[in-house]
Nucleic acid binder design. Structure first.
Lengths: 216, 216
DNA sequence: AATTAAGTGGAGGAACATCCTCAACTACCC
DNA sequence: GGGTAGTTGAGGATGTTCCTCCACTTAATT
């Protein structure tokens, strides 16, 4: 039922998507839409006409990016060696997030992607769980680790990306290696249980929170 | 040459310090001074009269807190077992930062503490270096690790605190253990060198940065 | 080439957040 | 009780972000 756009309008739509992609990647999904418009060489009004909310832009751009991550998880699960499957997945996902600050936001924050993106995110959890379990059965991951641990460590590495990536690109590989070694070779009993799955959402809500969402 | 304060004024000064301590601990050093005043049951003007800048409050409160961390490092160095010395230090420091969001800010951010606090921070680096080196000589830390690695991992754990501590208190112990295990038992060669010390400041500048300090 | 509907630009108003001053007031101290 | 130090908190100054609106431009149609 949607009428096709006029030729110039369609061209501008593409320009906006390209600009949004670039600006999101460089500065995260919280940038002003004005900046995207400017970067696209267009007026703000045009952006708002085509994508009334930031969410519309996010959905249009990150739907496939997240699906890609899910497919990497599947590839990891299909890999002959469980450990290589796990590390390969983690490295691919982290590399993608290192290159795109917006992707980090979408992957972790619960502030965007209420629609499609949230569904895709939920597809990831069981796969990550399986990646870990498979390694444990093969005896190459400590038995007291859990699937959520991988998510939490990704959180930490993503935080490192926020701080260090612009200054020391690629440094994350050093600390990811360190953490994965801990996961593989560590023997010190983990002193507290992993978080409940219900808590993961509440933890994710603190990803890049609004400046003054303070408590009392 | 500083005249003693009038009795009521001195009392209020104490009230302000106590309130600031509590509010900083709960919500970080970026809270509005208005909030501190209100929490102390005083008017904003009083706070501004006594501590003209936020920096004054910070210096008054965190000088000793940071010195305490330095002394823990010394205790760690004095401990008979190098590994226990190292982990003991790291755990004490992290526990302190888990309990005080303001302390995290002061320890990592370069936005405050240009004066005294910065000096104390600089006393820490060589001690941390020594803690690691001593463990390596004893053969209980991988030889390709460096002193700065401990700082960077603390960065990651501190980030985890930001996200998870309000929701799942104490969870940090799980991931700190994992990381320390990696540091001790890991064998996978670390793929990139540690950051130059000069870069550490630039990384720290991204700790809780102003909302729109974006690049181009 | 004239008509019309679709699309565009971007200044600027609205809604906030934060900072910090200052004039009227109050409390201490001698 | 006079003088000085101290207190107050509403509100002006400043800054940020969002998003609308309408005069203007351009593509499509006849």
């Amino acid at each position: 039922m949607t009428k096709p756009l006029r030729r110039d309008a369609e061209l501008n739509r593409q320009r906006i998507l390209k600009a949004a992609q670039e600006v999101f990647a460089a500065r995260g999904v919280d940038v002003m839409l004005d900046d995207i418009a400017h970067h696209a060489g267009l007026g703000v009004g045009t952006v708002y006409r085509r994508f009334p909310t930031r969410e519309d832009l996010v959905e249009a751009l990150f739907d496939t990016r997240l699906a890609e991550i899910v497919s990497w998880a599947d590839e990891g699960l299909a890999h002959a060696d469980p450990w290589t499957g796990l590390t390969g997945f983690v490295e691919q996902a982290t590399a993608a997030m290192a290159a795109d600050r917006g992707l980090r936001d979408i992957a972790f924050s619960r502030a965007y992607g209420r629609r499609r993106v949230a569904e895709i995110r939920e597809m990831l959890a069981p796969r990550v769980e399986a990646l870990v379990t498979r390694c444990q059965e093969a005896g190459v991951v400590r038995t007291d680790a859990a699937g959520v641990d991988l998510v939490l460590t990704q959180f930490m590495v993503a935080a490192l990306l926020e701080y260090a990536e612009p200054v020391a690109p690629g440094l994350w590989r050093r600390y990811l290696t360190l953490i994965l070694d801990g996961l593989r070779y560590g023997t010190t009993p983990l002193p507290v249980p992993p978080p409940e799955v219900e808590n993961m959402d509440r933890i994710a809500e603190n990803w890049r929170p609004p400046r003054r969402a303070g408590s009392g």
